[in-house]
Simulated assay, not measured.
Amino acid sequence: MPPSPPCLVVGCVGVAEPDAPIALCAWHLAVSADWSAAHEGVTDVLPTPCLVCGSRLGVRWPSGWLCAVCEWRHGEPLDDELPAPRVDVVYYLRFDDRVKIGTTAHPRRRLAAIWHDELLAFEPGDRLVERRRHALFATERFGRTEWFRRSPALDAHIAGLSAGVDDPWARYARWVSEAIARRG
């Protein structure tokens, strides 16, 4: 194995770390990592979950932690006087072999009032999006209700909404935290 090259820093007599992406000695690598962390932040697990959105992912800065999702400064109290932002969603619920397509701005309260077997997906949207979905799947609709027969087209639509999503509630929490972040 060839000897390590010298450190690129002028005047340094150290040798470059063999697996370093840039020919720097261990000390200069550490200094550059510290500089980068101070200017770019370091993504890591928050000490405790974010009080705003529940995320565990944060960015550590020399001045403290920020939630990586909603940018709440870890350790700051929440302003209880501000109302929660309104986030309208279209929801897809399964009961037996049927699917309900509805909308709400308060999904926990609404879904608690509806008998269902499984929450399949959420989609951002209000009554307009809900009406579009009802029209899109009109051939599967039970009368004038919000309940639909399962079909390949409806199943494909729901699969597209839930692709890469293990928990629809986590996605909803992210939308709420993004709305809080946009509000400032």
Rank of each mutant, 00 (worst) to 15 (best):
S4G: 03
P5G: 08
L8M: 10
G11M: 02
D19H: 15
A20I: 04
A20M: 03
C25Q: 08
A26T: 11
A30P: 02
A33N: 06
W35E: 12
A38M: 13
E40V: 13
G41E: 06
T43M: 10
L46D: 05
L46S: 09
G54W: 01
S55H: 01
W61A: 00
P62R: 13
W65S: 01
E71S: 15
L78T: 14
D79Y: 07
A84S: 06
P85K: 07
R86T: 11
V87R: 02
L93S: 03
F95S: 06
D96C: 02
D97A: 10
R98Y: 04
K100C: 05
I101Y: 01
G102T: 10
T103L: 02
T103Y: 01
H106L: 12
R109C: 04
R110H: 10
W115A: 08
L119R: 02
E123P: 02
L128H: 13
V129M: 13
R141V: 02
F142L: 15
R144G: 14
T145G: 09
F148A: 05
F148D: 03
R150E: 14
S151Y: 09
A159C: 13
G160T: 09
R171K: 13
R174D: 08
S177G: 15
E178T: 07
I180Q: 00
I180H: 00
R182C: 01
R182M: 07
